[in-house]
Simulated assay, not measured.
Amino acid sequence: MAAIAGILLAASTAGCAQEPAPASSGPRAGEIRIAAVGDMNGVRTGAAETPSGRNGAAIAELVENNEIDAFLGLGDFQYDSAHCDDYVKYWTRLWGGTKSKLYWVSSPNHDWKPGRNEDLDNFMNGQCPGAPEKAAINKERGFIANGQPYSKDFGNWHFVFLSSAPWTYDTEQAWALTGWLDKDLTAAQAEGKHLAVAYHEPYFTSDTEAHGRSADHKPWIDVMWKHRVRLTLSGSQHNYERSCPVNNADQCVPDGMTAFQVSTGGIGLRPFTSSPSYIEKRFSDTHGFLRLTLRDDGSFDWNFVPTSGSSTDSGTRAAP
């Protein structure tokens, strides 16, 4: 993991009430339009008429028609332990049309486990034979290694992208990421930016039979609360959840983080086995993706777009 330490040094330079979201009438000045989802493509899945195929096609259409400014890929792109051939033969077939606006994070296990499946970063940089296109962030920054943090401004919003994998593979590096996160958010907050963080394994989440909350991520959550991050995005659970604006003590508070867990990209869905009080909306019967409209004043609209199933969720959070 010494290589990641070098990467971190390089990267370091780099009210709970809701109301229905208004109908979209196209982009307006000061608005950023985003689509987001994780947990996308199953093993050897390449058919268009699958949940993954429908999601990939729907988001690719938004990209082609310039209806979104960014697609945030929240980890677990291709199951089960993907290498270049898997990304090229399967993920590209269904999701390739999203890559030109893709900002990504890698997850532990399915995207990256050292010594087993280390190709996602190469794929995103256009280095896998047969898939020369680079993801949007790679076009802007060049090669980004699995586990490397980065941040990006979208209008008046500052997004941080973190890999959850170091908490699994190297806690020393996870703590180094925590320090990097604190410095990055400090600088963005000083510039008056509204703050958001994307990472794969959720902290604010209901249990399933396979996963509970990622309690080891608590140092990140403490830093996010310190800087009053307004929005977080994660995946992993194979269902959909939205929290109240929540603080680092699981309390609903006016200036808390609205945490979206969107892992409905196409892999099989899982039911919930617990009911945290901070979760305001959830379902596990529908594949689809989240659309966000972010405004310069810190307000935002959300809308879950179902592509296989009928559950949805929409609303508005007012400016701070």
Rank of each mutant, 00 (worst) to 15 (best):
A210M: 07
T293C: 08
P245N: 04
L269I: 09
T307P: 00
G179E: 14
L269Y: 10
V197A: 04
H200M: 10
D184Y: 11
N303F: 07
S243Y: 12
T273M: 10
V223D: 03
R242Y: 05
G256P: 03
A176C: 09
E201W: 14
S214F: 14
S308I: 14
P271T: 15
P306W: 09
R270S: 03
A174M: 07
R213P: 00
S274F: 06
A259F: 01
L269N: 01
H287R: 01
P271E: 13
L195Y: 12
D296V: 07
V197R: 06
D255K: 15
W302P: 04
D184I: 04
T186I: 15
M224F: 11
H217C: 02
D182P: 01
G179S: 12
R242M: 07
W220S: 02
P219F: 13
A249K: 11
H227R: 11
A259E: 07
H211Y: 15
R242I: 03
W220D: 00
T178F: 04
P271L: 14
L233A: 11
P245R: 07
A249G: 07
Q173C: 08
F289A: 02
S234M: 00
S308D: 13
K281C: 03
T178G: 05
A190Q: 12
S284Q: 08
G235T: 02
T264F: 02
E280G: 01
G268A: 09
P219T: 04
V253Y: 09
W302A: 00
W180Y: 12
V305P: 02
H227G: 00
Q173V: 13
A215S: 14
A259D: 03
E209Y: 11
F300T: 05
G288N: 00
H238V: 04
E172T: 08
C252F: 07
S275N: 14
T273P: 03
D182E: 08
Q237C: 07
G179V: 11
D301V: 03
D297P: 09
G235L: 01
T205A: 15
V246R: 02
L181A: 04
P245M: 08
E209I: 15
V305G: 05
D296E: 11
L181H: 00
E191F: 04
G266F: 10
P245H: 13
T232I: 13
T178E: 10
R295T: 05
S275H: 13
L294I: 12
V262N: 02
V197H: 10
W220I: 15
S284M: 11
N239L: 12
V253W: 07
V229T: 06
D255H: 07
F304N: 00
V223R: 06
R270V: 01
F304Q: 01
L233K: 04
V223K: 09
A210S: 12
R282C: 00
H217P: 01
V262S: 03
S308C: 12
E201H: 14
D297H: 13
N239H: 13
H200A: 00
M257V: 13
A196N: 05
N247R: 10
V305S: 05
N248Y: 09
C252Y: 11
C244R: 07
T293D: 07
V229P: 03
R213E: 10
S277Y: 14
L185F: 08
D301E: 14
Q173P: 06
V229L: 05
E241P: 01
W180V: 01
F204E: 09
A187L: 13
